[in-house]
Design a binder for these strands. Structure first.
Ligand SMILES: [Zn+2]
Ligand SMILES: [Zn+2]
Ligand SMILES: [Zn+2]
Ligand SMILES: [Zn+2]
Lengths: 140, 140
DNA sequence: TGATGAAATGTTATGTCATAACGTTTGAGG
DNA sequence: CCTCAAACGTTATGACATAACATTTCATCA
């Protein structure tokens, strides 16, 4: 163990492999794509990848993109570092180049929390994903 | 054809069957659940359901819940009627009872549009889904 | 140090969601 | 009628995710 009060935990071998694959990728990867990339490192079965992903998501190092059924390494918008327990974030996903931008809009989060409060809804997680074209890919 | 300028189109047999199943349901249904419910009506294959769903979503009569891989009949928050071309809406999904509430928060949409504008991102669709417990299911 | 229990791992099989590819039917408009 | 686009039917396949069970790892502590 490497002490720590509440920072990023030590990763196991499989977790480190999966996190490495996601960190090195340009865009989101599916669990099976990750698996294919890690065959040479000894991974054989989807469950090995899914188990690592579950933990990485729990640690806040990786995010799942619900509208893509895929995963990306956390790329925190300026401010705190990845892995720091962070609140609700949003993603903009380019359908042309596959690029994903992670961003935080506190006003959006506050508004949704406001709605939840007035409705008595107790949110445990919030998904915000924009689909479209990024600046580079949008027509002039 | 029944004329119309831009209202809800006539549904084909399969579309009507699928829409009926969703309208009668208490919560979201997966395509395969819909299929099972419509076997007696002659539906045999997933594609028959998926094709109908594609159209119903296009018409704005049905929404796909990305975080559930399931579908719900549009249940517009007070204002205009289902099927009226409507903008971005959000969903609150209860993990206990399965209930789904569709709501519109114009400020949220505006704020996300603002972000997109400043980043040059051209959004074509937006997913907003809260997961948690509805008022009835939340602990006292 | 050696028992022990929680967490991680390995492996096989299965379940669930979605689409490719192809041919046929339907029906409005010319 | 003819034609063409849209909807339909069917089989096969691809893509995403988990159940179930046996084994290993390793920090903790008697
Ligand atoms: Zn993040
Ligand atoms: Zn792009
Ligand atoms: Zn709606
Ligand atoms: Zn509920």
């Amino acid at each position: 163990m490497t002490h720590d009060t509440e920072s990023t935990p030590d990763l196991t071998r499989n977790q480190a492999l999966v996190f490495g694959a996601l960190s090195g990728a340009e865009g989101p990867l599916s669990a099976y794509t990750i698996l294919d990339q890690l065959r040479d490192d000894g991974l054989r079965a989807p469950l090995q990848v899914y188990r690592a992903l579950d933990k990485l998501v729990e640690f806040g190092l990786v995010h799942r993109l619900e509208s893509l059924n895929a995963f990306v390494a956390c790329n925190h918008p300026a401010g705190d570092a990845p892995g720091e327990s962070h609140g609700t974030v949003a993603f903009a996903i380019c359908e042309e180049c596959g690029g994903v931008t992670e961003f935080a809009e506190q006003d959006v989060v506050k508004r949704l929390q406001g709605w939840a409060r007035t409705e008595g809804f107790h949110a445990t997680s919030t998904v915000i994903e924009l689909r479209g074209l990024c600046e580079s890919c949008a027509p002039a």
